[in-house]
């Protein structure tokens, strides 16, 4: 039964490894960027999983059930991981947009998206 609760963590590790596989072994630049995006989703999933508390209540003081406020104010969840995840998603979008726009420019100049063929000239 305890195995069930570990599934999110297994999914996190799996996503990170899938993403790394895509970055390391895929030749297409867009696929590499998809890999980075998958790693990022894995890390976000990790943060969200950390934030889950069984029996917790949303920490909005005015809309919490009155018995919770009266009896167990400690069951309100400190929303730090959620805040971290939101920030991380926003940053991820910025990085993704930047990478994709760079890929567009790279395709204009090199005419290919193969990672082995785009390289700065040595010497």
């Amino acid at each position: 039964m305890t195995m069930i609760f570990n599934i999110p963590f297994i999914a996190v590790v799996a996503m990170i490894f899938i993403g790394l596989y895509a970055v390391l072994f895929k030749r297409n630049l867009v696929k590499m960027v998809i890999g980075i995006s998958i790693i990022e989703s894995g890390v976000n999933l990790f943060l969200i999983t950390l934030g889950y508390r069984e029996g917790g209540v949303v920490p909005i003081f005015t809309s919490a059930p009155s018995e919770v406020v009266k009896n167990a104010p400690g069951s309100m969840v400190l929303p730090v991981p959620q805040a971290l995840t939101l920030t991380s998603i926003v940053i991820g979008v910025a990085v993704l947009a930047l990478m994709l726009s760079l890929i567009m420019h790279i395709y204009e100049h090199y005419g290919t998206l193969d990672v082995r063929k785009i390289r700065g000239p040595e010497e």
């Binding site: 970055v23 930047l98 990478m99 760079l102 420019h105 790279i106 785009i118």
Partner: peptide, 15 residues
């Protein structure tokens, strides 16, 4: 060409 290439490498590795 080289700047784009270098910038892409940088963003992939550092992200």
């Amino acid at each position: 060409k080289e700047s784009l290439d270098a910038a892409f490498k940088y963003i992939v590795i550092s992200s």
